[in-house]
């Protein structure tokens, strides 16, 4: 059964995008006609789709198609850039995150982000993970310990680092650092995880472990993952959104879209006619 989402009438130049979703799928994050401008340059044009809850959605497309920019809109990190303008809506559980009275740091807490290159803080492993809870006011040593342990266990890092919690996080391997950074994000209790090419800096073995971790995480969290690697998208994701020059071209079930894309553009990209 297809669900069509149309943009509100007061947004000019909108096109209705038909989204195919199996019946009864719950949407964690809903984008409605999201448009983004960096100064005079438009990076996103009326993107609209729904990110299904507790599934992995891959965002694919050629370079400069706006994938990373889209991600940064979803946790309002683009607010930090002075010349950014956003139109449209992003709804988290029905509430717009761009509402006038929205609390930005609360949005970012609930929508976590993992970056392309692991960026652990120059602190100990423990302090990296405890950074978020401390912000939220958790002070008790036992509570902090529990948070840290829980987060590290969720990323399967606890056994490796439990003996060196006080060592510098920079001493870990890249794969460990990436998992540490995810644990850091988990420690503040998000619902959604945005990941921007998270395995691109990792070697193949670490990438494999990472993809296994993704499957586990998807049981509790909604994951939106940007990747330029089609095989990875096929292996890991449940749904795929294909972005081209700032527009959403197609969205759908991974297997269906990758084997039988509806749009010509999608087919060209998947078969490698352009990078």
């Amino acid at each position: 059964m297809a669900t069509t989402m149309t943009a509100p009438d007061n947004v000019p130049g909108t096109t209705a995008v038909t989204v195919e979703l199996p019946a009864g799928v719950e949407i964690a994050l809903e984008l409605r006609a999201l448009s983004l401008w960096y100064g005079a340059r438009q990076a996103l044009d009326a993107v609209g789709f729904g990110v299904p809850a507790r599934k992995i959605t891959a965002l694919i497309g050629p370079s400069a198609s706006g994938k990373s920019s889209l991600l940064r809109c979803l946790n309002r990190l683009n607010d930090e850039l002075p010349e950014c303008r956003v139109e449209g809506e992003v709804l988290l559980g029905g509430t717009s995150i761009y509402a006038k009275d929205a609390i930005v740091h609360e949005v970012r807490r609930r929508i976590g982000m993992v970056f392309q290159k692991p960026n652990p803080f120059p602190l100990s492993v423990y302090e990296n993970v405890a950074y978020g809870p401390r912000l939220l006011g958790v002070k008790g040593r036992r509570e902090l310990d529990a948070s840290v342990e829980g987060a590290l266990k969720a990323v399967r890092l606890w056994d490796e680092v439990s003996a060196r919690l006080d060592d510098s996080a920079l001493a870990l391997s890249l794969g460990q650092q990436q998992r540490l950074v995810i644990a850091r994000a988990l420690a503040v209790g998000p619902e959604i995880l945005l990941m921007d090419e998270p395995a691109s800096a990792l070697d193949p073995a670490a990438t494999l472990r990472f993809e296994e971790l993704l499957h586990e995480l998807a049981q509790r969290y909604t994951v939106l993952l940007v990747t330029h690697n089609m095989q990875q998208a096929a292996r890991v994701s449940d749904y795929v959104a294909f972005l081209h020059q700032g527009r959403l071209v197609e969205f759908g079930d991974t297997d269906a879209l990758l084997t039988n894309p509806r749009e010509r553009l999608t087919e060209d990209y998947i078969t490698g006619r352009y990078a």
Binding site: E143, S147, G150, A151, G189
Partner: peptide
């Protein structure tokens, strides 16, 4: 969705 926060005793 029933969401189990990872944190206990969050204030």
């Amino acid at each position: 969705v029933t969401y189990t926060p990872l944190l206990t005793g969050v204030r």
